[in-house]
Simulated assay, not measured.
Amino acid sequence: MLTTSAALNTNEAHRLIKRLCAHWSHKFTVETEDGLGRINFGDSRCLLTAKSEQLHIELDCPNEITAERMQQVVFDHLKRMAKTELTEPVWSTSNVECALGQ
């Protein structure tokens, strides 16, 4: 599993989480609580967290190609829902080895 994350500077993180989760709730399994959103895309998962003046995004994807696609999909949807312009995020990536059976 590949984990990629980014932080967006915005004062509307809570609102964006609610809107994005509501938007995708008809198609995917979504969980929301105050300042937190989880979206299960099937082979990929997205965690959104509101922190101070930032929106933290974490994606768990099966591979790099899927991660790049999901980064763009999530950011494109956030841009459409934002009241203010969002700056293109800088993504950091890490590989997570599955330790099942160890």
Rank of each mutant, 00 (worst) to 15 (best):
T84V: 08
H56Q: 13
A22C: 01
T4P: 03
L47K: 06
V30I: 00
N63F: 01
M70D: 07
L16H: 05
T93F: 03
R19N: 11
C46V: 10
H14F: 08
L59Y: 03
L36A: 08
L59E: 03
E64L: 13
E53T: 08
L36W: 09
T10Q: 04
E33F: 06
R45A: 14
H26P: 04
N11C: 09
L55F: 05
R38Y: 15
D34T: 12
P89G: 05
T4K: 00
G101M: 09
E68T: 14
G101H: 09
C46L: 15
H56D: 10
M1L: 08
M81I: 01
N11S: 11
G35M: 05
L86N: 02
K51D: 15
E31T: 10
G42S: 04
H26N: 14
T10D: 04
A50K: 04
R19C: 08
S94E: 14
E88F: 06
L78K: 06
V73A: 05
T29R: 15
F28L: 12
F75S: 06
S44T: 12
L16C: 01
I57E: 01
R45I: 07
K27G: 00
W24D: 11
L2E: 05
K51M: 14
E53D: 15
M70G: 02
H14L: 08
P62C: 00
V74G: 04
V30K: 11
D76M: 07
A67D: 04
L48Y: 01
F28W: 11
E58N: 07
